[in-house]
């Protein structure tokens, strides 16, 4: 499949799409967790996002997509000067990937043929400045999760193995998806995701039929379908770029900071990461809507997705924490 399904053509799933757009505006928000049923378009959305994102400028041939030639790590070789436009990397991290593939390891080819000790970068290097997508993230093996936690925290991948001592930047937006029925996610990893959304299979027939219609049109005549949706996709891309530019000049009134804090206190979320992410997401939301000032309504729009996974979890609460956030939101910020 050369051309992924267009992002704007995905029916419904507004929360998921919104969360992905927000991280595209401000990667600092720190990732999206998409939990829900099978066959609801989780993977489709991630692959569509890859095509939607604006291109980045990077040094040609640089394994970590450096911005400037002087940032290219020494182990990647010298002489890399040329700047090129390339698509934002969206890297798949398959379940059961070995540590070697994730963090990188000794380049065994060069070691064997030339006897050189060289570093072969892994998935984390390739995902720098882009997205790292983990399907079935809740089934990921624990030691890989530990690695990811460490790197996601520091934005730097440190490799100390086989006589190599390498560090390189690894700043990426973590996108995870999974089905909660198959296992829970460790709270430590949960907390690292900036936003979390729950997707459900659409419950009404009309929506489902519409999904089928679009998918069918896409499969039958991909070119025509892409053409039909190209305008919407590029409008969305422009909106993202405009929002990125506007982010710096955004005013954040004191009252909004107070709102953030009081909401998090009322919810009893652990740590301060909740407030920080809430504010960042609200700013991105404001920029996206084209407002000059962050307001309470932006806060309300993003509150559920930023906070619902940070509550101390009651494992037996079936309603899910989304409902709790909504309730307390209504009480605290009328």
């Amino acid at each position: 499949m050369s051309q992924p399904f267009p992002f704007s053509a995905i029916v419904g799933q507004e929360a998921m799409k919104q969360a992905m757009v927000l991280t595209a505006i401000d990667p600092g928000i720190g990732g999206v967790l998409v939990f829900g049923d099978r066959g609801t378009g989780k993977s489709t959305a991630v692959r569509a996002l890859a095509a939607l994102l604006p291109e980045i400028t990077a040094v040609e041939g640089c394994p970590v997509n450096s911005v400037r030639p002087e940032d290219v790590p020494a182990w990647a070789g010298t002489g890399l000067r040329k700047l090129v436009q390339r698509p934002t990397p969206v890297i798949d991290l398959p379940l059961g990937a070995t540590e070697d593939r994730v963090v990188g390891a000794l380049d065994i080819e060069r070691a064997l043929t030339r006897g050189e000790k060289a570093f072969e970068p892994g998935l984390l290097a390739r995902a720098n400045r882009g997205y790292l997508y983990i399907d079935e993230v809740n089934l990921l093996e624990d030691h890989i999760v530990d690695l990811l936690l460490d790197v996601a925290q520091s934005g730097e991948n440190v490799v100390e193995r086989e006589g190599l001592s390498i560090r390189h930047p690894a700043r990426f937006v973590l996108v995870g998806s999974g089905n909660p029925e198959e296992g829970e996610l460790r709270p430590q990893l949960l907390d690292r995701f900036g936003l979390s959304v729950e997707v459900r299979s659409p419950r009404d027939v009309e929506t489902r039929v519409e999904v089928m219609r679009r998918r069918d049109a896409y499969e039958n005549d991909t070119a025509a379908f892409m053409k039909k949706w190209r305008a919407k996709d590029s409008a969305l891309r422009k909106a993202i770029l405009a929002a990125r530019a506007a982010l710096g000049g955004l005013k954040t009134p004191n009252t909004v900071l107070h709102d953030c804090a009081s909401l998090c206190i009322a919810l009893g979320s652990d740590g301060l990461r909740g407030e920080l992410t809430l504010l960042r997401a609200a700013r991105a939301q404001a920029a996206y809507e084209g407002d000059a000032t962050v307001s309470r309504s932006h806060l309300k729009t993003v509150a559920t997705s930023t906070l619902s996974h940070r509550l101390r979890r009651d494992p037996l609460d079936e309603a899910g924490s989304g409902a709790r956030v909504a309730r307390i939101l209504a009480e605290t910020l009328p």
């Binding site: 489902r208 039929v209 999904v211």
Partner: peptide, 15 residues
């Protein structure tokens, strides 16, 4: 699509 829905198949891959 409707039949799949009536049968309680949540996944949209099925239809």
């Amino acid at each position: 699509t409707k039949v799949a829905f009536a049968m309680g198949i949540p996944s949209l891959r099925a239809p």
